[in-house]
Computed example of a mutant assay.
Amino acid sequence: MNYASDPIWWHLKKTIVRDLASLLTAPSPWISSAELPVSILLGNEGFRFLLSLDEQPDNLYLFLKQHGGYQTHLGVYAERLLYYWFLHAPHSRLIAHNLPVQDNQRTVGAFDFIVQLNDQIFHLELTCKYYGSQSDKAESFIGLSKADRLMDKMHKIKQQLALSIQPAAESTLKDLMLEPGMLQHASIIRGMLFTPSANQHFQAPLHPLCWQGRYIENWAEFEFQEHHRFYVLDHLSFLSPVRVSSNAIVNFNQIKQIRQGMIALVQQHADGYWHEVERIMKTDQHS
Rank of each mutant, 00 (worst) to 15 (best):
E226L: 12
A147D: 15
Q267A: 10
N253W: 04
G213D: 15
G75S: 14
M281C: 14
A162N: 11
T172P: 02
H269V: 02
G213S: 15
L50N: 11
Q203V: 03
L41E: 04
L265I: 09
P7H: 09
H73N: 11
A220E: 14
L60V: 04
I216Q: 09
M182A: 12
K156N: 09
W211Q: 01
N59S: 07
L193S: 10
G143Q: 04
P167I: 03
S5K: 13
D103V: 00
L236S: 13
P208F: 07
A110Y: 04
N253L: 11
S33A: 06
Y131T: 06
P29I: 08
I31N: 05
I165N: 01
F47Y: 15
E45M: 14
F141H: 11
F111T: 11
G132C: 02
K153S: 00
I188A: 14
Y61H: 15
E170W: 04
L94E: 07
I165P: 00
Y83R: 07
R149E: 08
V115A: 10
Q66T: 15
E45C: 04
L173Q: 12
D136G: 10
E276K: 05
W30I: 08
F49L: 05
I165K: 04
N253V: 03
R18S: 07
E221K: 10
Q254C: 01
Q105D: 15
T72I: 01
S171N: 14
H185R: 12
S52D: 11
Y130Q: 04
P196N: 12
R190Y: 06
L41D: 03
A198H: 14
A162C: 04
L265N: 09
A26W: 08
S135W: 13
H235W: 07
E170V: 09
S39E: 15
G75Y: 07
M177P: 00
L24Q: 06
E45Y: 10
D136I: 06
W219Y: 05
A270N: 09
L12S: 03
S92M: 02
L50W: 10
F252W: 01
A204N: 12
E55C: 06
R106L: 14
D284R: 06
Q254H: 13
V244Q: 02
F194L: 06
L94N: 09
D112T: 01
T72Q: 13
V101T: 07
W10I: 08
W10M: 12
S145R: 15
L94W: 08
Q105K: 13
S245E: 14
F49C: 12
E55L: 12
I121W: 03
L36R: 07
K153H: 11
L51I: 03
T72Y: 04
S246I: 01
I40A: 12
F111R: 08
Q105C: 02
M262H: 08
K129A: 08
I31S: 03
V101R: 02
F230E: 12
W274Y: 11
A89M: 05
E223P: 05
Q66G: 00
F224V: 14
A4R: 13
F194M: 13
D175F: 01
S171M: 12
P205I: 04
E35N: 05
F86M: 07
P180R: 03
M1Y: 03
H269A: 12
G43C: 11
T283F: 00
S145N: 15
Q285E: 14
D152H: 13
P241H: 13
L87I: 04
L239T: 02
A89L: 05
E223Q: 15
L173W: 05
H185C: 01
